[in-house]
């Protein structure tokens, strides 16, 4: 394992400390318990947005704290959901009296730890609600399983819901926007190489030189299927087919197309994938009216991508376009 780190135990602490120095204009950092919060939090009368989860997915979530997006982010150990204490502390830190929304990716650990924190926060009189993100079509959904995972679509939920909170929507309305985005976004990923968790020191799975893993999550888990390497266009077609099978579109619909790098993918490859995905959507009469391309929900240094498609309407488009000022996503101010 070759990593630019000091001690695997300090990866999260030190990275967050660096984040604090770099983005002191946008955020404050609490070190014990550890969380990142908007420098102007709590904002009176604004619904607070808190997300979090295991580290290793940066810029998710800390990079999305700031005006028009999250009020706080709670980083756990690498690929391990945070415990309730920092989630509770972050919830308290952003509570401006209008309630707090937890944006939680659907993993048993994340759901349970956020649930516990929400119980504790409610006990202190904070109105806490949660939305569970489950955009990953690689996993079959069912009432009897852990259900779909939350993956890169989370970024879109955070941006759009953040804009709704920023414009002054109340808690019910903010929850409704978050649920609407979650219900209209689907994601599917592929890995070309695995990643190495610092404390493990070994790759999360082993792929031969001509193999790729289809339907991966964002924690170095193996995917649904291992296949031979194919040209980029063929891989993109597979991912999109799974997405479009699941998300009903009609000709004339508008979509936001999000090609997400898993951390170790050269940018040219993201754009090659974007080109093909846009082409396929256009062929189906779906207009790509918004787009996002880059490393936004990563698995450390994994090479690979995920593709997310969000079905837009006027409201979602205008919330997407609204100003945002975070370390990783910024426009309009």
């Amino acid at each position: 394992m070759k990593k630019l780190i000091n001690d695997p135990k300090n990866v999260v602490n030190e990275a967050v400390a660096g984040f604090e120095v770099a983005h002191g204009d946008i955020v404050r950092v609490s070190h014990d318990p550890i969380f990142i919060v908007r420098s102007d939090a709590p904002i009176r009368g604004k619904v607070g947005l808190v997300s979090g989860g295991g580290s290793g997915h940066e810029p998710l979530h800390g990079g999305f704290v700031g005006y028009g997006m999250l009020d706080a982010a709670v980083p756990g150990a690498v690929f391990t959901s945070p415990t309730p204490d920092p989630i509770l502390a972050a919830t308290q830190a952003v509570d401006g009296g209008a309630g707090v929304l937890h944006i939680v990716k659907n993993y048993t650990g994340d759901v349970l730890n956020f649930e516990t924190a929400a119980d504790l926060a409610s006990a202190e009189g904070i109105d806490v609600r949660a939305v569970i993100i489950n955009d990953d079509v690689a996993v079959k959904d069912s009432l009897y399983t852990a259900g779909r995972r939350g993956v890169a679509g989370t970024v879109l939920v955070e941006k759009i819901t953040g804009a709704a909170a920023e414009r002054g929507d109340d808690l019910d309305a903010v929850v409704a926007v978050a649920e609407k985005v979650n219900s209209r976004v689907r994601t599917m990923g592929v890995a070309l190489t695995p990643c190495v968790v610092p404390h493990a020191g070994e790759p999360s799975f082993v792929l031969a030189d001509d193999e790729i893993e289809i339907g991966i999550g964002i924690h170095g888990e193996p995917g649904r299927e291992r296949i031979k390497l194919e040209p980029a266009d063929a891989i993109v077609d597979r991912l999109l087919a799974a997405i479009l099978d699941d998300l009903p579109f009609v000709r004339g619909d508008n979509a936001l197309l999000f090609v997400n790098g898993m951390g170790g993918t050269p940018q040219v490859e993201l754009y090659i994938a974007f080109r093909r995905a846009a082409e396929v959507l256009e062929e189906k009469g779906i207009a790509v009216t918004r787009s996002l391309i880059g490393n936004y929900t990563t698995s450390l240094e994994m090479a690979g991508i995920s593709i997310s498609v969000l079905k837009l309407d006027e409201e979602l488009m205008s919330l997407w376009d609204a100003p945002v000022q975070t370390a990783a996503l910024r426009w309009g101010r």
Binding site: A77, T80, G109
Partner: peptide
């Protein structure tokens, strides 16, 4: 201190 699924 544990986090993840196992903690809760």
């Amino acid at each position: 201190t544990v986090g993840g699924a196992a903690g809760p």
